[in-house]
C-alpha cells in the first residue's frame, strides 16, 4: 500500500503539471462549424434555398473561420450534393455542387490534369465540386433554365498528391478553362485518440 499511496500522489502532480503546461502550449487555428437551427437562418437565405431546390431536407451550419463567419446550407437533391454558402446577413456567397470528372469539358479537364501532373509525381482525385458565383437572380435562372449568364464557374478539387518527399491532401481551385487559381493544403485533425 505504501507504493500505492506514492503512485496516487504522483498521479495528481502529473495531472496538474500537464494541465497547467498545456494551457500555455496549446495554440491552434480557430475554425468551428456547428449545426444551426432553421429559425436562426436569415429569411433571404432560406427563401433562396427553397426557390433553388425543392429539397426539404436542408441542414444549416454556422461556420467560423479565421477570416470571418458564414452560414452554409447542405442538402442532397436529385442525387447531387449541394452546398450553398451565405454571409451572416443572408446574402449569397456561392453554390457548390459535387460532380464527376465526366461532367467537366474534355479541354478543361485536360488543362486541370496537366497542372496536376506538373505539381505531383502521382495524384488521386477525391472530390470535385463545381462552384457557381453570381447574383441570386442569375443563379436561379441558371439552375432553372441552364443558361449561364453573368455566372463565374470554378472547379474545386480535393486531391491526394504525392511528391518525392511527401504525400498530402490538397484543395485546388481552377477556373472554367482549367487554369489554376489557388491551392490549399488540408490539415488533418489530430488522430491520437484513434491511433493510441
Amino acid at each position: 500500500m505504501q507504493f500505492n499511496v506514492f503512485k496516487m500522489k504522483n498521479l495528481c502532480v502529473l495531472f496538474c503539471f500537464l494541465f497547467l503546461g498545456n494551457t500555455i502550449i496549446a495554440q491552434t487555428k480557430f475554425e468551428k462549424e456547428s449545426r444551426l437551427s432553421v429559425h436562426m437562418v436569415p429569411d433571404q437565405a432560406k427563401q433562396f434555398v427553397y426557390q433553388l431546390l425543392a429539397s426539404k431536407q436542408v441542414k444549416w451550419y454556422h461556420e467560423i473561420h479565421e477570416t470571418g463567419q458564414s452560414i452554409e446550407a447542405k442538402t442532397k437533391y436529385q442525387n447531387k450534393k449541394y452546398s450553398i454558402e451565405f454571409n451572416m446577413d443572408g446574402s449569397l456567397q456561392d453554390i457548390e455542387v459535387e460532380t464527376h470528372k465526366d461532367d467537366i469539358s474534355v479541354k478543361t479537364y485536360a488543362n486541370i490534369t496537366n497542372v496536376l501532373e506538373t505539381k505531383f509525381d502521382k495524384h488521386w482525385i477525391k472530390k470535385i465540386q463545381i462552384q457557381y458565383i453570381g447574383s441570386k437572380e442569375a443563379l436561379l435562372t441558371f439552375f432553372k433554365s441552364g443558361h449561364p449568364n453573368n455566372i463565374t464557374t470554378n472547379y474545386e478539387i480535393v486531391l491526394k498528391g504525392k511528391t518525392k518527399n511527401d504525400k498530402a491532401l490538397y484543395e485546388y481551385l481552377f477556373n472554367e478553362e482549367g487554369t489554376l487559381k489557388s491551392t490549399k493544403t488540408i490539415i488533418f485533425r489530430n488522430t491520437d485518440n484513434i491511433q493510441f
Binding site: 491552434t28 475554425e31 468551428k32 462549424e33 456547428s34 449545426r35 451550419y61 447542405k74 485533425r189
Partner: peptide
Amino acid sequence: FDIPLNGQSVDKNE
C-alpha cells in the same frame, strides 16, 4: 468510430 455531436467535424469546444 468517432463522430461529432454537433456539426460535421469535431471542432474546438465541441
